[in-house]
Nucleic acid binder design. Structure first.
Length: 474
DNA sequence: ATGTCC
């Protein structure tokens, strides 16, 4: 174990060890800035483990693609590592349709229009869920929703929703909510059920199962050629509010305790301090918000499919998980605080952390591709314990939004979406200019990232999901 | 990623 090879290395930085799970080519392409950033993060006291996945790239304070671990008793919590899109993650639903059902581009267009009618994607969008109490969502996650928004049964035998979610409810100290100003409360309320922009998306995909994973795919309910829906979104402005108001408490504690690194943007406090506990509690409210936000969008997409494809169309939940969060977990009998900034948990078969329906198989790890490229369903492997069962979260940006706009013309972008051809990946907007900075050229090659994760023995591929249509925020 | 302010 722990043997360095061309897919895994340990870097000895001045402040400590950084584990990098990436092929040599991807590692050398990362540049020095990501190592500087790691060195700052490693200066946070008591850190037990820090690693990069192959999609690592520079973020604010901490690289996207970071897994960082402390003990819960003597450890630290960092709002900078979690970031501001708290609870951002993936949700996947399976339909009873086949790829051939959507061969006609006009049907894909009608579906996209029907989704857009139900899910606001524009800037300053307002959601349609005024009959839901924000307090209930923050306090109880999916359990805070009125019954009509939870179409699947709550009972484990029939459930396809609540039991197929990594965490349907986080409990927390509700008095901490008083720290958030009332106007931000109202903003978060009207944003429920909205997509957001940037790399967030709703995609209609066709599933292709890996030859050697047919048994597992069958146990998950996957079929070759099946149509699925993938949703990538987070906690909208509520996460930002938590980051700001929870983070400012943390900053005060840092100066009181004389803590800091070379990067003034890197905030952290002892988990057991007042500020640490306050932030952790607020963060849990954002995780509740994020899972509900994705759930409500899935509810709307289900309605859209029924309208266009017929009332017999099903959209059962496969799974929902996050890639920006931290949580207390038991690993090797120890209580640890695991931070994920753009990294996905992928537990193997038999691991006790799997939700009940996936205890024996391992849960699906949902990995988004860039727009126009495939997404992946993966499963953890036992060797992944070396990285606390944390894997990549996608392709990873390779150039900035501005640099992408300089490099890629609208025509080039249109042709990578095969616009105007029979196999066009239908987008929700004809204003392609607004989406150029999300073009595939802005991202690393997701296939390479996935290969790197597999070769490093963190996870295996179960299925590849090819995009047929995408709804993006504009 | 997001909202705000220039």
């Amino acid at each position: 174990m722990n043997k360095q090879n061309s897919y895994y290395r340990v870097i000895d930085l001045p402040a400590g060890e950084l584990h990098v799970y990436a092929h040599d080519d991807l590692f050398y392409a990362m540049g020095n800035k990501v190592l500087e950033m790691a060195n700052n993060n490693l200066q946070i006291p008591g850190i037990r483990h820090m690693s990069y996945t192959p999609d690592a790239h520079v973020g604010v304070g901490t690289c996207i693609g970071t897994t960082a671990v402390w003990g819960t008793e003597d450890g630290y919590i960092s709002p900078s590592i979690v970031g501001s899109d708290i609870g951002c993650g993936m949700r996947m639903h399976l339909t009873n349709l086949q790829g051939s059902d959507l061969k006609d581009v006009r049907l894909r267009r009608r579906l996209v229009k029907a989704i857009e009618k139900r899910i606001p994607v524009e800037n300053h969008a307002r959601g349609y869920f005024s009959d839901i109490w924000l307090e209930d969502v923050l306090r109880k996650g999916l359990h805070g929703l009125p019954g009509k928004y939870v179409p699947d049964s709550y009972t484990p035998r029939k459930a396809t929703s609540l039991t197929h979610v990594e965490n349907s409810r986080f409990s927390f100290r509700e008095t901490e909510l008083d720290r958030i100003p009332e106007n931000l409360y109202h903003r978060a309320h009207r944003q429920l059920g909205t997509l957001g922009n940037g790399n967030h998306f709703i995609e209609i995909q066709e599933i292709a199962i890996e030859e050697n994973k047919r048994d597992l795919a069958g146990q998950w309910g996957l079929k070759d050629g099946q149509i699925a829906v993938m949703i990538h979104s987070g906690s909208r402005s509520w996460g930002g509010a938590v980051n700001q108001y929870g983070g400012s408490q943390v900053a005060k504690t840092m100066s009181k305790l004389g803590l800091g690194t070379a990067d003034p943007k890197l905030a952290f406090a002892p988990l057991q301090s007042d500020a640490g506990q306050s932030y952790a509690n607020l963060m849990y409210s954002a995780l509740n918000y994020a899972v509900v936000n994705r759930h409500l969008m899935a509810y709307a997409v289900r309605d859209a499919f029924k309208e266009v494809m017929g009332s017999k169309t099903e959209l059962t939940t496969l799974y929902d998980l996050m890639h920006n969060y931290c949580s207390e977990e038991t690993h090797g009998g120890e209580e640890l605080l695991i931070h994920h900034k753009g990294t996905t948990r992928a537990l193997p078969a038999g691991h006790s952390g799997n939700p009940a329906p996936y205890r024996e198989t391992g849960h699906p790890a949902l990995i988004p591709g860039s727009m126009g490229t495939a997404s992946y369903l993966m499963v953890g492997v036992p060797e992944g314990a070396a990285n606390y069962h944390s894997i990549c979260h996608g392709a990873g940006r390779v150039r900035s939004r501005n640099a992408t706009k300089q490099l890629v013309t609208v025509d080039e972008f249109a042709s990578s979406m095969r616009i105007g051809q029979e196999d066009e990946i239908v987008l929700n907007t004809r204003a392609l200019e607004a989406l150029v900075d999300e073009s595939p050229q802005a991202y690393k090659d997701v296939d390479q990232i996935i290969d790197s994760v597999v070769q490093a023995r963190l996870a295996d591929v179960v299925a590849k999901c090819r995009p047929l249509a995408a709804v993006k925020g504009v």
